[in-house]
Design a protein around this nucleic acid. Structure first.
Lengths: 225, 225
DNA sequence: GTTTGTTTAAAACATCCGTTTTTTATGGCC
DNA sequence: GGCCATAAAAAACGGATGTTTTAAACAAAC
């Protein structure tokens, strides 16, 4: 069992360090020394640093993808072809996200990694995630589409990403926010508590009135990109 | 004018490269060679790479802080002590954010930098921004407090950060999202267009009904942090 | 015209990086 | 025992990084 021990110790250490400092700021020497493993072990077992990063993600996203597919199967069976309400879809996604890392007690790490996958350059990562787990997301968005038939496609697309930003930003920066919150309001905030607060906000945001068309040409477009 | 030319050329180049790839992934040699400036110039004029990063931020945040203070002064004068409506406050912040980089045609860069400041490790950056520009933010949140008297303090705190996440996440990851959006919906998305879409969503989110108290103890808290 | 202070240029420095190679240890199999 | 594939450990490699040092150019002041 020497191998699997080394491999998982590398993964356990790497995911924490990556989540704390990002990929470029975390060297293989950081990882291997903290994991009390030889430097060459990463290249031996994973091939390269890139592959290590992908392996860290796979360990979260493989079970997530699998469970989420299962949960959606169950949902579609229960509703027998009828549209699944938006609240139910969101709730299902939330509980699935919460379930996966719960087994490893590291939701914070999971969310922080997701945030990095978006914000960080790391082109290879986005591509990897896209082609590896894009189908689950597509399936979900299609169900959301049926649940919100009055929303224009583009509007729904953007609002989904708005909410993705809300959740990832909040949960990935949880520690910093929690510090401020506890200092200012003297109350402890659990993840479940946060999800409870997120629920009505996300639902209200998705159901917000459509933007005013007149706003389009309010100003000359002095802001190029 | 040789000095100021070198300095601004470094800043102009650095902010673009930082925004594109992040701080760690951008070397001083990248910057100086692209700016056609000697490698040692950065350390000579700024002292260190850290100081360069902070200078890049200061060039955006100093005018922003100044203008935002001015805009709030104006608003408080206009409302003569009466509470300023939430929509007006949000609108003021949005226009101020849009105004500052418009002069340099680089809102995208500005937003991306803000996103990096949050997501990236770079402890020194968050500390620098906090102590340098914390007061403007405090002033703003106090006005928001008066505008939403029915919202519990903790709830308002979290919702403000939820929306901060929405905006920063969306605008800092704009390029990637824009690619997907244009591929799927064949429409170009301008920043102004995005702000128009964000407005009703943010307002609806802030005014969402309070979370259901009963939800607190729905599940055993198996999820630690 | 020399001197002085400031900016640029070039080179060198020490350090850290990801990866590869070489060597040593380990444990199952004939 | 000897054999062999697998894993771990140690050492080295080539390259890139931030920074510092040394030398040259330049303009202003006297």
């Amino acid at each position: 069992m020497a191998q699997s021990d080394t491999v998982t110790r590398i993964l356990d250490t790497a995911e924490v360090l990556f989540a704390e400092r990002g990929f470029a700021e975390t060297s293989l020497r950081n990882i291997t020394s903290k994991a009390r493993v030889n430097l060459a072990a990463v290249n031996y077992h994973f091939g390269s640093k890139k592959a290590l990063i992908q392996a860290v993600f796979a360990r979260y996203l493989d079970p997530f993808s699998q469970r989420f597919h299962g949960a959606l199967d169950e949902l579609e069976a229960r509703y027998e072809g009828r549209d699944i309400p938006l609240e139910v879809l969101l709730e299902t996604m939330a509980t699935t996200v919460l379930t996966v890392p719960a087994e490893r007690n590291s939701l914070k790490v999971f969310m922080r990694l997701l945030g990095l996958a978006y914000s960080q350059a790391q082109g290879h990562l986005r591509r990897y995630i896209q082609q590896q787990y894009g189908d689950v997301f597509s399936r979900f968005t299609e169900l959301v589409r049926r649940a919100t038939p009055d929303l224009p496609d583009a509007e729904r697309f953007w609002r989904l990403h708005f909410m993705l930003g809300t959740v990832i930003f909040t949960l990935s920066g949880l520690d910093a926010l929690r510090d401020i919150a506890e200092k200012d309001y003297h109350q402890h905030v659990s993840v479940r508590d946060l999800v409870r607060r997120l629920r009505p906000v996300v639902v209200a945001a998705m159901n917000a009135p459509l933007p005013d068309e007149k706003d389009i040409e309010h100003h000359a477009d002095t802001v190029a990109h």
